[in-house]
Design a protein around this nucleic acid. Sequence first.
DNA 1: GTGAAAGCGCTAACAC
DNA 2: GTGTTAGCGCTTTCAC
Lengths: 332, 332
Amino acid sequence: MRGKRATSYDVAKLAGVSQSAVSRTFSPNKSASKKTRAKVLAAAQELGFVPDPIAKSLSLGRSRLAGLVVTQYAQQNYPVALKSAVDVMTETGDSILLQIVDATDDGDTAIARLLRRRVDVILCAAGVSEAAARTCAEASVPLVLINRRLNFAGVDQVGSNHAMVMRGVAQHLKDTGTRRTVFLDAGEGNWVAAERRRGYVAACAHVGLPEPDILVGDFDYEGGFKAVAQMGDAARNFDAFVAANDPMAIGAIDALTLELGLSIPADVQVIGHDDTAMARLRGYRLTSIRQDMRTILSKAIEMAYGRLEEPQREDADLLIDSTFVPRGSTRD
Amino acid sequence: MRGKRATSYDVAKLAGVSQSAVSRTFSPNKSASKKTRAKVLAAAQELGFVPDPIAKSLSLGRSRLAGLVVTQYAQQNYPVALKSAVDVMTETGDSILLQIVDATDDGDTAIARLLRRRVDVILCAAGVSEAAARTCAEASVPLVLINRRLNFAGVDQVGSNHAMVMRGVAQHLKDTGTRRTVFLDAGEGNWVAAERRRGYVAACAHVGLPEPDILVGDFDYEGGFKAVAQMGDAARNFDAFVAANDPMAIGAIDALTLELGLSIPADVQVIGHDDTAMARLRGYRLTSIRQDMRTILSKAIEMAYGRLEEPQREDADLLIDSTFVPRGSTRD
DNA sequence: GTGAAAGCGCTAACAC
DNA sequence: GTGTTAGCGCTTTCAC
């Protein structure tokens, strides 16, 4: 076993067949007689032969690598996402090349790196410019956007149906007698927060709730706390806070209870987003919304490889339903 | 731009030089005259030429891929770890192939997959059998263990100095008048929790604190809560709980305050581990311990590639200091 | 069904 | 310094 690994030539020699016979044996649906196949497999077994993926890549023109671009936030808060993506890929023998972008949400340089690496497809859950999309198109590398939006021919998209789930949120608030509400947004350039805000604002109009006030925090716990704490007594005028994510919602809860002495959910209801581990703590019991990241990722992968086969296919734009997860921070 | 990408032959033809001249121009410290280099670079620029990493891999026998095996827990709770690993690798033009193992902490199948993928090195922050280590050795793929331990020639290790930081913890507890303490351990097979437990137990002996009681939870919030809640009034006999991680510590806090009506840190002090986002919430203000994951990862990468150059180098075993982060769940 | 041979795009001896 | 040539380990025509 020590030393060089066996090649298809070694196997061929031992099996007494040609090297191409070995190649055929290891390629699905290729012609090879039962006899040859058996001889080859026996020899391969004996030598511990495994086809070299690198040589395969060079020959096939496919690296069997998929690029995945995520933000630091996603990496932390959608734990199942990364794992399910890796799992889905592993099934087909492909692997994931990860790129993590920070809060600036700029996926362009990550995409450039992945392209240089010759990935077959790119899944991007970060902001992307048209220029980057064009680069992918020129390299014939399918680009699928996750929870982001870009109008560019050939780019597929998949993400959560924020508009839909927010309608349920607004309806719930209205049903529980809520009057004035606040949406805790994140700063400029946070596409996900903005999408959730748009969904909530539209939902309020839809169910007949007054238009919410918009408060801007930092998409994290401190951001949510400070934004609400700075409202001071003005915060007492609202009876529900809907946040763009869980950390902000928890920050809001701490500001409302610790700073203003309000009681949750009696005085004010709070709703987060992403159903993170924090939401389940008994000290908060935060009502939240769970995105179906498993489905989103597997659909994204499916779309990407689908387009690799059929580049001219019409652009897809898929919305996946999220789930409302009621807990103690809202009333029934 | 549309269509096939340029190869070194295209560049050679346009520049009026040989293909090998192009190769040399793009390889650091290879002989090439200023003139040729300039011509080549100009031609490359014009054609948008970028050396194909796949062909390079085949020729060099290096994939420029590093395998990284982490547990699901690590992926969630050491957010900086993954990013810093990716960053460090990206600098040198290498990439990371991620494998995520679940709570069983079994890295063997992940390692097998990475080996099949022909990664150059493997960094493993999950449990590994001797057999797997041997497989790596036979394939001449350096294996570096992160926060795990295995006695196998050629395997380097790097991890947190749990013994050292736990000595500080024990000293702090002793200095603040603590008498009887509990260590919240995780179940069988959780190497990290066990290492922290061993460190704490030894530290107690070292500073003259009575041997701690060991309580076993599930390495998560519910696990910590239930373990302590089930103690019932017996929990009142202890004045400090040291947990193997933050979620368990927070669970302990909730059980101690919500179920037993104890006050923290006046009645009982609680200390977690990993300094996660949860620890900073005002509702808990959990004293914790921060591992220096950036350093651990960069050292691991350094060790792995170092051994690739020098396979016979003597085995390394590095301990990196962690930091005690005092917050409101402990007294001064 | 099977083998011979070309080719994927690069690096590295080797000779000049 | 530079060009020629032989690989790296596969897949895939193309004859037979």
